[in-house]
């Protein structure tokens, strides 16, 4: 079981980031989230979602899903995003295993239903 992200449904609201970090910190922050909206190309209106799992960094781009094994060299043809580096230092997704009432918090809070379980 894992998180599935439909980047075309995403509305770039960052609620998933907040909920994920809340799961780690028991307060409101963005620092610990293992799921983030990448939004650095603001003028180009290009946004999607990054998810760090234990072994993989999933990049849900509007044009499709990209899965990178952590530790392998990045594709030199892809422009790096400011969101990526801090992500690699964070804990991987544990599907909010301690949040019995909700399941993964990012899924529970996403207003656009862009996040599901697969």
């Amino acid at each position: 079981m894992g998180i599935k992200i439909d980047a075309l449904k995403c509305i770039n609201c960052m609620a998933c980031e907040m909920a994920c970090s809340y799961h780690r910190d028991d307060g409101f922050a963005f620092l610990s989230a293992c799921i983030v909206v990448y939004r650095a190309r603001e003028k180009q209106d290009y946004f999607g979602v990054l998810l760090k799992e234990e072994e993989f960094l999933k990049v849900a781009r509007p044009e499709g899903l990209e899965v990178n094994r952590i530790g392998e060299a990045a594709d030199p043809n892809k422009k790096a995003d400011a969101s990526v580096k801090p992500m690699l230092l964070r804990e991987g997704c544990d599907l909010c295993e301690d949040m019995d009432d909700y399941g993964p918090m990012c899924k529970a809070i996403c207003p656009a239903d862009a996040i599901t379980l697969e």
């Binding site: 509305i11 609201c13 960052m14 609620a15």
Partner: peptide
């Protein structure tokens, strides 16, 4: 092109 939302605003 696309629609987007302010922080955690359910309507874009």
């Amino acid at each position: 092109h696309r629609h987007s939302a302010d922080y955690f605003t359910p309507y874009a």
